[in-house]
């Protein structure tokens, strides 16, 4: 009788231990999804893939991380997906300042505060450039032209995006009167400026440094000069107190147990310390700088404040 009971309880215990019903004590017990709000193959997508690759190749987690592309609705499809997920740490959002700008622009009704921050892995500050045959070689000339003949300088941008905010900062700090043309993403902007339809744009330092595009770099929005374009002055050098960078953030659903967030953060830190990852990202002109915990929160807060300061100019 007792034996029968033991068997029964063993069977019951086994049944209860079936996957799916198991108490998920040993996190992660299944793959962790990294939700990427960009199209497969885009630049931002590729960096996330490289990092995830490093995590998996080096078995930094007992379970793999998988990249799931969910582009659409101006990145809010992906962010909403993670925001509304179960707070169990199996869905991670990979996004940048768009989380803030889409809130300011009213595309989403939440900002970074709706998530539990994991870490910031890398960033790139933006540059301001004109076409090689535009005849505009420095930022003072551009500012002056825009003031002397309003409407003569048109900026190829994506309305409501960080580029739009960045040019708005430039206008506000320098007194320039640069007008906007809504052109789209990086590729479209380069086409528009190189085709002479528009005059200037926000672009990555890497693209400024490319010989084959022949762009003129005018200004860098980072704190110090960028190594790929050492001749381009920073906004600070020009006496304008502005800064604008794209910071890549990893976030998860609000309410996720802190030990899980910590594990994810530790994993990313390890991945970002691998020389091949650092090299891959830095040759593209980005900076690897790992932030977590309070430092990361401070970075987010600073961005929220900075972007909100020009909100009235872009809304």
């Amino acid at each position: 009788m007792l034996k029968g009971k033991t068997i029964l309880s063993t069977v019951l215990a086994t049944m209860l231990a079936l996957p799916g019903y198991a108490q998920d004590d040993d996190y992660p017990s299944r793959p962790i999804e990294v939700i990427v709000p960009f199209q497969t193959g885009g630049e931002a997508d590729l960096f996330s893939r490289r990092i995830v690759q490093a995590v998996n190749d080096n078995n930094l987690l007992p379970q793999p991380m998988v990249v799931v592309n969910k582009p659409g609705a101006g990145t809010t499809l992906a962010s909403r997906d993670v925001k509304n997920a179960d707070p169990d740490g199996y869905k991670v959002l990979y996004l940048h300042q768009t989380l803030i700008t889409s809130n300011i622009m009213g595309t989403s009704d939440y900002g970074p505060e709706a998530f539990d921050p994991i870490a910031e892995t890398h960033h790139v500050c933006v540059a301001y450039a004109t076409g090689g045959d535009s005849g505009i070689g420095d930022i003072e000339t551009l500012v002056k032209m825009s003031q002397d003949e309003p409407g003569s300088i048109k900026d190829a941008t994506l309305l409501g995006s960080l580029s739009h905010f960045s040019t708005a900062m430039l206008n506000s700090a320098s007194g320039a009167d640069i007008r906007f043309v809504n052109v789209g993403g990086g590729g479209e902007r380069i086409s528009s400026v190189m085709g002479g339809h528009t005059q200037s744009m926000i672009i990555t330092p890497y693209n400024v440094s490319r010989d084959d595009l022949g762009l003129n770099g005018l200004l860098y929005f980072g704190p110090e000069r960028h190594h790929l374009m050492p001749d381009v002055p920073t906004a600070k050098e020009m006496g304008w107190d502005i800064e604008s960078c794209v910071n890549y953030w990893w976030m998860t659903t609000k309410g996720t147990p802190s030990d899980r967030v910590q594990l994810l953060s530790d994993t990313l830190r390890e991945a970002m310390s691998l020389p091949e990852v650092v090299e891959y990202i830095e040759t593209k002109g980005l900076n690897v700088e790992f932030l977590e915990g309070d430092a990361f929160r401070a970075s987010i807060d600073a961005n929220v404040e900075r972007l909100n300061s020009v909100a009235s100019m872009v809304q």
């Binding site: 193959g41 040759t283 593209k284």
Partner: peptide
């Protein structure tokens, strides 16, 4: 656009 991604994965511009 995806082909460009493939090139970029291989560190090619």
């Amino acid at each position: 656009a995806i082909l460009i991604g493939a090139l970029t994965i291989h560190d090619l511009q």
